[in-house]
Amino acid sequence: MSEQGRPLNKRAIYERRRAARALAGASHDELAELWDAWENRPEVTYLRGPEAGLVMVQGRIGGTGDRFNLGEATVTRATVMLHGCGLDDGASGTSYILGSHPGHAGLAAVFDALLAVPAQHDRVLAEVIEPLERRQAERDAAAHSDARSTVVDFFTVSREHE
């Protein structure tokens, strides 16, 4: 299932990856809330899924050496087509999200599709992606702060009679 009409320039790739990261890191409830708040919701048709599958996750020996297969992870993917609300030609979007949450993958595909609509692009970034990024940054900062509070300063006790 190939997508047509979506640019593959650096900026478009960067933005789509950024949006995917924010959408994957959010919870289904967060996305559902944002979609409920979206004005003029277009009609959503599922071209594929949401369907469950796997990816084989690879690591590297020693962190930077040869690759090896670490194990599989569940993934849910969806491809949607949006119609109505000024989308004359429709707009398609795709999502792949770790885990087994069809609703999450479905809504992520919807926002991915809206991101590709020039008239909706800025609104998706401002009303969906940026708030999600801020929340993720807050969660990360809190977790990182907790982790840094456990930094220990060991000191070596020098041996006597040496």
């Binding site: 190939s2 593959l8 491809t79 795709t94």
Partner: peptide
């Protein structure tokens, strides 16, 4: 760690979530 996946129909790698290792 962040997991990415090279999505064939998109044509480039996309972040798909994080796993703990």
């Amino acid at each position: 760690v962040e997991v990415e996946f090279e999505v064939p129909e998109i044509g480039h790698a996309m972040p798909i979530g994080r796993i703990e290792v």
